Amino acid sequence: MAKRDAQTGDKVTIKKYANRRLYNTSCSSYITLDDLAKMTREGTEFEVVDAKTGDDITHSILTQIIMDEEANGTQMLPVGFLRDLISMYGNSMQSMMPQYLEASMASFRENQAKIQEAFREGLGNNPIAKIHENNMAMMRAVGQAILPGSRSEDKAKGSSDSDEIAALRKQMEEMQKKLDEIGK
């Protein structure tokens, strides 16, 4: 959630003066574009207005921050993407691009949050572990197809989990032998 001015609960207002200086009205101090970039990363909601005209110039200031970041070696926007973006100006689809880009970024953040949550929960619950489980299930199915009846006989005998693991290992060894023979 975006942070707002602690005193008023409103967006933080930044005034840009003709001498290019930026003034943060909430803390009564001059700031830099780097400070605005930090505020953005922290989720602080702000608007930048021209001190003389009162026009909202937030968009151009945020674009300037991106240009500075890209120029300083932390390039994130691929050339192809930039070319595609430029080609959309004047295109009939231009009016749809802002909503599309916002929806894409929201989806990216949501997926990023899901991945981070999976890692926080531990390796047992992450997507890689689930892929491993699926692979093991496939290997069991292949083992049953190659050696029919071996697992069903074990279950009929009421074998324990360790017996099942041993049987799976044996099946895997036999499958590897057969694959090695086929490969010769």
Rank of each mutant, 00 (worst) to 15 (best):
F81H: 02
G43R: 11
R41F: 11
L33E: 09
M76T: 15
S60H: 07
T40W: 04
V79E: 00
I66Q: 14
E45A: 04
T63I: 02
Y30R: 12
N91K: 08
E47T: 02
S60F: 01
D56Q: 09
E69D: 09
G90Y: 06
Y89L: 13
I86G: 01
H59D: 06
T32V: 06
D68I: 00
S87M: 04
S60A: 09
A71F: 11
I66S: 06
M96I: 04
N72Q: 03
E45C: 03
E42T: 08
R41Q: 02
V79H: 05
T58P: 03
S60Y: 00
D50A: 10
I57N: 02
L82M: 14
I65A: 02
N72K: 15
R83F: 07
I31L: 00
G73V: 15
D84Q: 12
N91C: 06
T53V: 06
Q94M: 10
L85T: 15
S87D: 14
A37S: 04
T40K: 07
R41A: 01
T63A: 06
L77P: 03
I66R: 07
I86M: 05
D56K: 02
L85G: 05
R83L: 10
E42N: 07
D34I: 14
T32W: 05
D55A: 11
F46D: 01
A37R: 13
Y89R: 11
E70A: 08
T32I: 00
T32Q: 02
F81N: 08
Q75V: 04
E69A: 13
Q94L: 00
G80I: 10
D84P: 04
K52A: 15
I61H: 03
D55L: 09
T32G: 13
D55Y: 12
R83V: 11
V48N: 06
M93I: 06
H59F: 11
Q64V: 08
L82E: 07
L85K: 15
M96H: 05
E45N: 01
M39V: 10
D50K: 04
E47M: 00
G54P: 12
D35P: 06
S60Q: 09
